[in-house]
């Protein structure tokens, strides 16, 4: 189906009546996913500074309220099942949601806050005609027009978007919009667009999981972290990072339980009550970050926890580039491939 670019704002205006609509919005030079009230606010095709994971997994979220008084205990959880549409998601970010699904619905437990939002949110992605120089999605098993995680994928073919339904929900959604069918010309154009979308950045990740299997005690980690500030920029802005903290905000016996993003790059993240800390320096923390993304996550869920979006590269205050880290890891001698 075809959506004319000039009709996007109107289409979003209509959606807003029925759904909560999130779209990339530019404010003060920074693009973030926000709930919009009017179609004109949206800036489809822009890559957001903060990843849209925050739609499903907000940076700060109240899990439940409670109150204990003479009448006993009352608790109220706040599970958000508003029908929502995330419009203008990047394919890498859509893919990251599939990875997060593994985490928030594991073999034993279901995080109903996340899964309820996930079930009620349609993901409409826009493919990347012009990947940035920091994008390396094709090196980590994705691509500028990857459909994983999207319900609908839009391809920018100039004056309009070609819309493809990826899932059943996506199909139903598109049907309701009553859009004109795509002609052969548009289809050909879309195919060409997809083909010409070239990545300029590539890094060889083959065998990195196995390499890291033998690298826990490798001296490489001693030098890797040296310039790192131990801040939360790379992890907070990463679409696949999912660590969080749980805290209570309360006065006397009434309050709420809040969860906030947390980061493995912070020293307090693993500090025991006894004062012992299994990750004492940036060395252990950077190793955890690299291992989690390219070894532990692969071991658990059979995919690397990096979709190659490049946000950590662009936003690291000291220009510590994860592509270089991958390349360095690959280049280390682990002694295991001698024979």
């Amino acid at each position: 189906m075809i959506i004319n670019k000039s009709e996007i704002a109107g289409l979003l205006d209509n959606l807003v009546k029925e759904y909560r609509v999130y779209a990339p919005v530019q404010k003060d030079g920074i693009v973030t996913f926000e709930q919009i009230n009017e179609g004109t606010q949206a800036k489809p095709g822009a890559t957001s500074k903060k990843p849209p994971k925050e739609i499903l997994f907000p940076q700060s979220e109240e899990l439940f309220n409670y109150q204990v008084d003479s009448q006993g205990l009352r608790m109220e959880d706040k599970i958000d099942d508003t029908k929502s549409v995330a419009f203008g998601v990047r394919p890498c970010d859509a893919k990251s949601m599939m990875l997060l699904d593994n985490v928030f619905h594991n073999d034993e437990y279901e995080d109903v806050y996340y899964t309820t939002r996930r079930k009620n949110t349609l993901i409409i992605s826009v493919g990347c005609n012009q990947p940035a120089s920091t994008c390396f999605c094709t090196s980590v098993g994705s691509s500028p027009f990857d459909t994983d995680g999207s319900d609908v994928l839009l391809t920018d073919i100039g004056d309009s978007y070609l819309a493809e339904a990826i899932t059943e929900q996506g199909k139903e959604f598109l049907c309701k919009l009553n859009l004109p069918a795509s002609d052969d010309q548009a289809k050909t154009k879309a195919e060409e667009t997809k083909k010409q979308a070239q990545l300029t950045s590539e890094v060889d990740t083959t065998g990195i999981k196995e390499k890291l299997d033998d690298m826990f005690d490798h001296p490489y980690w001693e030098s890797l972290y040296e310039k790192c500030l131990g801040c939360g920029a790379c992890t907070y802005l990463c679409p696949t990072c999912h660590c969080f903290d749980i805290a209570d905000e309360a006065k006397d016996c009434a309050g709420c339980r809040v969860r906030n993003w947390d980061s493995c790059m912070f020293p307090l993240f693993t500090l025991h009550g006894s004062g012992h800390n299994p990750r004492t320096s940036g060395k252990e923390r950077w190793r955890q970050r690299a291992m989690h993304k390219f070894n532990y996550f692969v071991e658990r869920y059979n995919a690397s926890a990096c979709v190659g979006c490049g946000r950590c590269i662009k936003n690291c205050p000291v220009n510590l580039d994860i592509r270089q880290v991958i390349a360095d890891i690959k280049a280390q001698d682990t002694g295991s491939e001698v024979s």
Binding site: F244, I246, D262
Partner: peptide
């Protein structure tokens, strides 16, 4: 197994 802080390896 979600908040990510208690892992030893995987």
């Amino acid at each position: 197994g979600m908040c990510g802080r208690c892992n030893i390896g995987s």
